[in-house]
């Protein structure tokens, strides 16, 4: 029991979960919609669920416990293979379907219900897929620590610069001409159909690339 508790408490040490929680809080206090905050909190919750799943599996293996039922059985079920979706996104049918979906979805303005629904549903499915499938089995060598620090530092500076612009706005929900955030700068571009096609296309392409790499 003590071992299980210690493993469950280890959940709190996962930096990725904390990054998602902090980002979710910033999103909500900056006037973001509930959906935007929810996807970040859901990610953090799934990471914690995954740690709990790992702890439960280890306890079952170590103690040879009886077969669990209900939620525990779902939690400890072996992860699915990522290969079917990886193969699917490579197919011409998915590429053509994706392009058609982008062209149709871009007919709707940003921050409207249809686009929120499209990006929200696709995002939730992708995060759920990442949780349900096992990571790729081929070993990935850790990049040099110096390189990790350099990339991490660059992303951190970008985040802080964006946060500075956000805090210098008249209020959290109102953009500032003098201190523009990236989304404030992109809004005029995304107000046009071509801009939305480009934005949605890039987002979809990035998602496809992530699935192929995962």
């Amino acid at each position: 029991m003590v071992t299980l508790m210690r493993r469950l408490l280890a959940v709190l040490r996962d930096p990725v979960a904390w990054i998602l929680v902090i980002a979710g809080v910033v999103e909500l206090i900056s006037g973001g919609t509930a959906a935007r905050g929810a996807i970040l909190f859901a990610g953090a919750a799934l990471i914690m669920a995954d740690r709990i799943r790992g702890a439960l599996v280890r306890v079952r293996v170590n103690h040879g416990g009886p077969s669990a039922g209900g939620a525990v059985a779902v939690m400890t079920a072996p992860p699915l293979s990522p290969e079917p979706l990886k193969a699917a996104v490579e197919s011409r049918r998915w590429v053509v379907g994706g392009i058609a979906a982008v062209l149709v979805a871009a007919l709707f303005g940003v921050h409207t219900l249809p686009l929120t629904a499209v990006t929200g549903i696709v995002g939730v499915v992708a995060v759920g897929w990442a949780w349900l499938t096992h990571p790729h089995v081929d070993a990935v060598e850790r990049p040099p620590l110096r390189g990790l620090w350099i990339w991490g530092g660059a992303l951190l500076v970008l985040g802080l610069w964006e946060l500075g612009a956000l805090l210098l706005q008249p209020n959290m929900a109102e953009g500032s001409y003098d201190h523009p955030t990236i989304s404030y700068l992109l809004d005029p571009v995304l107000a046009t159909y071509g801009g939305r096609v480009a934005g949605l296309g890039l987002w979809a392409f990035a998602g496809r690339t992530l699935v192929r790499r995962a």
């Binding site: 996962d14 990725v16 979960a17 990054i19 998602l20 980002a23 999103e27 973001g32 919609t33 959906a35 935007r36 996807i39 970040l40 859901a42 990610g43 953090a44 799934l46 990471i47 995954d50 740690r51 992860p79 940003v110 686009l115 929120t116 990006t119 929200g120 696709v122 995002g123 939730v124 992708a126 995060v127 897929w129 990442a130 949780w131 499938t133 096992h134 990571p135 790729h136 990935v140 989304s183 992109l186 995304l190 939305r196 934005g199 949605l200 987002w203 990035a206 998602g207 992530l210 790499r213 995962a214």
Partner: peptide, 22 residues
Amino acid sequence: LRTRSGRIGVFAAWAWMGLHFL
């Protein structure tokens, strides 16, 4: 992407970008 928490973090960040900008 080699760990599950990394996968969830990367995909959640990507999903958030779609919701935030679009």
